[in-house]
Design a protein around this nucleic acid. Structure first.
Lengths: 76, 76, 76, 76
DNA sequence: GATGCGCTTTAAATGC
DNA sequence: GCATTTAAAGCGCATC
């Protein structure tokens, strides 16, 4: 019986957390909708969020790497 | 200035919610890990969660259709 | 100069193969579209393809495990 | 009978194309392996390929957009 | 054997 | 609402 209880317990915890995750996703969606109503382009908003999520150092590092290897290739 | 404040506000609300969503995703991952440690196959666990999430009617409908197609093929 | 040539060569071979891969992916998509036009449910088609790709032994094994877990739960 | 033939035909075409796609994927993998043997860092190679895949105009466009909105936000 | 990384596939969002 | 394009999740591999 113990094992059965564990299985049910695991499943239900996952389902509960999944519900939470969905709820937050809905919230995010609503914020985008509000922003759109306020005149902001959702696509651009998403891009900003995406860019801000990348550590500034990494972004610069990638740029640097690009330069180096493009030079090795003699341009893109 | 008002518009900029709104933009910042929208962005920050989205980022905060995104953090929450990620945190919940991590929690879910951990539950799967615990279940695996307890001897349950994560793949099958996911399958159960997936099946339980589908409305019973739909699930039967798909099963039925699948049967039909398999019969048309003369088996898998 | 030799090393740079090698780099360029590797890159270009990868890019060429990637193009091929994309082209085949497009072909697959088109077959699904044709099948849908012919009245077949793409979702179920994908399910059949997926099932046929799994070695028969494995598929039965997973089915068995799934049954076991569902029984442990007392049904879905 | 016609419908059955069509179903089988669709499935088999998909499976054949999927095989092709996998084969090309293997080829790509092998090129990366060769490049690694020749002393190139696979991770960097992948990055180059990724960057070259982005149209130069788009990349500049994205940079521009970033600048504009970062300014609106008063920095990242 | 575990952890991270890349690829594939599936779900969602946008535009037509 | 349908199709295309983009983001997220799941899976497998390769490394340590």
């Amino acid at each position: 019986m113990a094992v059965q209880d564990d299985l049910k317990s695991f499943i239900e915890r996952i389902e509960r957390l999944t519900e939470e995750k969905k709820a937050v996703a809905v919230d995010i969606k609503e914020v985008y909708a509000s922003a759109k109503s306020a005149g902001f382009d959702p696509k651009v908003l998403r891009q900003i969020v995406r860019l801000r999520a990348i550590p500034i150092g990494e972004r610069q590092e990638q740029e640097q790497l690009l330069e180096t290897y493009i030079n090795n290739l003699g341009g893109l």
